[in-house]
């Protein structure tokens, strides 16, 4: 399973034709305490770069963009009661959505871990 990153600090874990999407630890740290996450409905489709979710911290609202095109096949319902999971476990329990990829070639345009670390440093 490979992990890819966007310059806007989303991560994408790919398993076959499904991608799990979340925000990076760096982004979660910059946001501060997350108090609410607005997730899309299952079945909704997004084009790469579309606004897909909104994460609210104590101080501000930030958009989360679809890192790749696809259809939402699952959302992390656990964030409804425990939005702080985004801060506590941004790259695992704090995942946002699972997308069924419509164009796997888009993954080639994303960063790998090394490139992302360079991007934020």
């Amino acid at each position: 399973m490979s992990v890819k990153y966007t310059k806007d600090h989303e991560w994408v874990k790919v398993d076959g034709d499904t991608a799990t999407v979340g925000i990076t630890a760096y982004a979660a740290e910059q946001l501060g305490d997350v108090v609410f996450v607005e997730l899309p409905e299952v079945g909704k489709s997004f084009d790469q770069g579309d606004e897909m979710a909104v994460v609210e911290s104590v101080k501000a609202a930030s958009e989360v963009y679809a890192p790749v095109s696809g259809e939402v096949v699952a959302v992390n319902d656990g964030l409804e009661g425990e939005p702080q999971k985004v801060n506590e476990s941004p790259d695992a329990d704090g995942w946002f959505v699972k997308l069924k990829l419509s164009d796997t070639s888009q993954l080639d345009g994303l960063m790998d871990e090394t490139a992302y670390q360079a991007h934020i440093s």
Binding site: I23, L31, S62, V64, Y65
Partner: peptide, 8 residues
């Protein structure tokens, strides 16, 4: 998501 880094 867009992140604003430390501002100068």
């Amino acid at each position: 998501m867009p992140v604003t880094g430390p501002e100068t």
